[in-house]
Design a protein around this nucleic acid. Sequence first.
DNA 1: CCTCGTATAATTGTATACAATCATACGAGG
DNA 2: CCTCGTATGATTGTATACAATTATACGAGG
Lengths: 238, 238
Amino acid sequence: MGNYDVKQEVTDKYSLRGRVFHKIREDILSGKYKEHEELKEVAIGEELGVSRTPVREAFRQLELEGLIQIIPNKGAYVTGITVKDVKDIYMIRSLLEGLCARWATENITEEQLEEMEENVYLAEFHASKGHLEQIAELDNRFHDIMYEACNSKMLQHSLRDYHEYVLRVRKKTLSDANRGEASNHEHRLIMEAIKAKDAARAEELANRHMINAYENMVKNGLEEAYKQQESSEEEKAK
Amino acid sequence: MGNYDVKQEVTDKYSLRGRVFHKIREDILSGKYKEHEELKEVAIGEELGVSRTPVREAFRQLELEGLIQIIPNKGAYVTGITVKDVKDIYMIRSLLEGLCARWATENITEEQLEEMEENVYLAEFHASKGHLEQIAELDNRFHDIMYEACNSKMLQHSLRDYHEYVLRVRKKTLSDANRGEASNHEHRLIMEAIKAKDAARAEELANRHMINAYENMVKNGLEEAYKQQESSEEEKAK
DNA sequence: CCTCGTATAATTGTATACAATCATACGAGG
DNA sequence: CCTCGTATGATTGTATACAATTATACGAGG
């Protein structure tokens, strides 16, 4: 239950307010709650040791994110995430990460660029040592730096949403060491394009970066990670 | 207060659950609550004739949408929407509407295509008669048909979000009869491209459609519609 | 006069109580 | 045996009560 103290920053950011929200979200994305399953306020509240009030607030947020659907006076039902959803997200992200890279080229600060360079070097180091955990962490951070650098609150918001959405899938695919190195190399190219102020190239590279990530994911069994929707067909029959 | 019975469908969709949410949202987008203003739960609750509970739930949703920022144990502060935000949204939408048009070309059903054709004809009729209200309504519907036709839950969700976000600006610019007719014509071209199964052309046209809408908006005084942020500078000084 | 600490007020966070709505089961009537 | 209506239980919707936290005001001490 209390697996939220792994990273201190994240803990502080989410503890108390939003802890319930992120826990339920995690449980949906991890497949604990299956598609079309009904979520009861009291049951989840008891499981997390809180009353219905915070649970209800979390439900409202989850509905807005599209993870559950709330039917008034009836209940909250898990929407789930299908293979097609993941594919769509990567296509959408491909476009938006491209736009982000373009804007980042125009707006990035010296500090951000330096952190990006450091990130790339560090990632290559950890890749050579086989430190998978750090690679995933640095990959997260690389994209986050770019989201900040693009200087657009709106774009940043959308990309963060999508990024989190597929976080579980990403963690799985980045565990593949080959893709990890390829991904790092793509990060380097993007970074260099940004540094050279070549916005068009940065956009094109970021575009490809997403497509590559997606194609690799398909190759490495995206279906398996999300076979939950098959088993939910029985659920639907009820 | 009770201006929600203009359109029956919308009323039913939002009444009871979500009414509070949409009302507060409307008040933020309309500029009633200015940037950096603190929203008190009890005050808003009394104004809407409800207790704190529904207000709090609405706050959580609004935060997720980025319209307010909630600082734990302190308060909820209006984030507002700046000129740059609107510009960014249109650039983002340009890409996503393009993608949507492409996917719609591949997935649209006969019924949807027929409704789209009907929509275009109707819009041209009302434009010739100068019925501005109907034009805005049909414009909404045109895009909504395409969102449905693209057959992507994720893309549909994002585009609806953005669409609503700039709804107020759009209503203002579509009041310009010239842009209304130009917009209708662009709708027709998109529709014809979809009908001809020319996905690349549909994408390109939808792209341009957004850029044109944005450029027209700038010309017609986008700044004026959102000058609220200037006045909020004083607020910030407090 | 300024600084710091305590006390008070205001506001949010959470839990609980009550109301409204929906699902289910059971039995009367056909 | 089936259908419909009512009654009961479960679940959500809302309001209120209490706890925790934060902001403010005031006064003691330097």
